[in-house]
């Protein structure tokens, strides 16, 4: 169970001084600027939920995950993970959670993967039978067998990621944070990881928070979506509700001969991609039907090609974030 109330995190950023004199001055007096990364976030997650935590680059997703993991101390607000305040009791919290940062490996560069597993076995006091079963199980599903004895520095990105995910789950944590676990993976590897998350969730009732920029990940594994934008929550609810409430939307993608100045309308929103000679029309069926919108662009531009994208999460998000 995860409980987050009015959570804030500000970063102080050191302004690197220009010039020699400024550098000397900076030894005694440093100039900071403040970045508000997480800005009053609240949510509650029950055991066994799989939650997609989604937002644009720099929205504050990783920062939230780092606070939940005990890496960062919040500027203000309260948070508990399974009743533990992460930054106040890091050891107890660590036993409860598994963490994957897709952009950064937690494996040891010089150690073979199997040694990293052994390291975690000893760190988390994993009983022999549980350990043996998990290693076997994870090796099978995530196909680690081919490279488990190789030092990590020799592994490919996808191999590393699979090993990372395995290791984050090896002590059967009730809560798992996956920060971009599918970044840089091919479609087969992505599918394997999605299935793996679902299976573990079903078998063990593990709670997952997952951040990703691939909306297919969300569609496949999440029941619930939390949308964060500039450190603030924009949506929190079931995936189905989300699709329904925004489901009237669609995107027309038109390849055109040349640009003309076309006035924006109340009824839709047009984005021009000059270099690709493309326009994107974001529409809403409750305001203008797809056929009317098509008619409109056909009249306004000389259209070479047109495609219609009905709302999936990605198009909805795009619409929310581009407007």
């Amino acid at each position: 169970m995860i409980d987050v109330k009015e959570l804030y995190k500000e970063f102080k950023v050191f302004q690197r001084p220009d010039g020699v004199w400024a550098s000397v001055k900076s030894i005694f007096h440093r100039e900071y600027s403040i970045i508000k990364a997480v800005n009053g976030v609240s949510f509650h997650i029950d055991n066994g939920e799989i939650v997609g935590y989604v937002g644009m680059n720099g929205a504050g997703k990783s920062t939230t995950i780092k606070m939940l993991s005990g890496i960062l101390v919040p500027s203000s607000g309260s948070l508990t993970v399974n009743g533990i305040i992460p930054y106040k009791n890091r050891v107890a919290n660590a036993k409860n959670i598994g963490v994957v940062f897709g952009q950064r490996s937690q494996l040891y560069w010089d150690l073979p993967v199997i040694d990293s597993f052994m390291l975690h076995k000893r760190l988390y006091d994993i009983p022999n039978d549980v350990y043996a079963e998990n290693v076997k199980h994870f090796t099978d599903i995530l196909q680690l067998g081919n490279f488990i004895h190789q030092p990590v520095r020799q592994l490919s990105l996808g191999q590393k990621m699979r090993a990372n995910i395995a290791i984050s789950l090896i002590h059967n944590p009730p809560v798992v944070f996956l920060d971009e676990p599918t970044i840089g993976l091919d479609i087969v590897a992505k599918a394997a990881i999605r299935d793996f998350i679902l299976e573990i969730n079903k078998q063990r009732g593990t709670t997952f928070i997952l951040t990703t920029h691939d909306m297919n990940d969300i569609e496949h594994v999440c029941q619930r979506l939390i949308l964060i934008d500039k450190g603030e929550i924009r949506y929190d609810g079931s995936l189905n509700n989300f699709k329904q409430s925004y489901g009237e939307k669609y995107i027309l993608t038109c390849q055109i001969k040349e640009f003309k100045a076309v006035p924006q309308s109340e009824l839709f929103y047009i984005e021009e991609k000059t270099d690709e000679k493309k326009i994107l029309l974001f529409g809403d069926k409750s305001k203008i039907s797809v056929s009317d919108a098509v008619n409109y662009v056909m009249k306004a531009y000389e259209v070479v090609d047109i495609s219609i994208q009905e709302s999936n999460i990605e198009s909805i998000l795009r619409q929310i974030f581009t407007q």
């Binding site: 890091r90 050891v91 660590a94 963490v99 937690q106 760190l123």
Partner: peptide
């Protein structure tokens, strides 16, 4: 580099 993250999520004093 932010690599200290790892030491903070292990069940042992960093």
């Amino acid at each position: 580099e932010g690599h200290f993250d790892q030491s903070l999520i292990k069940p042992i004093h960093p």
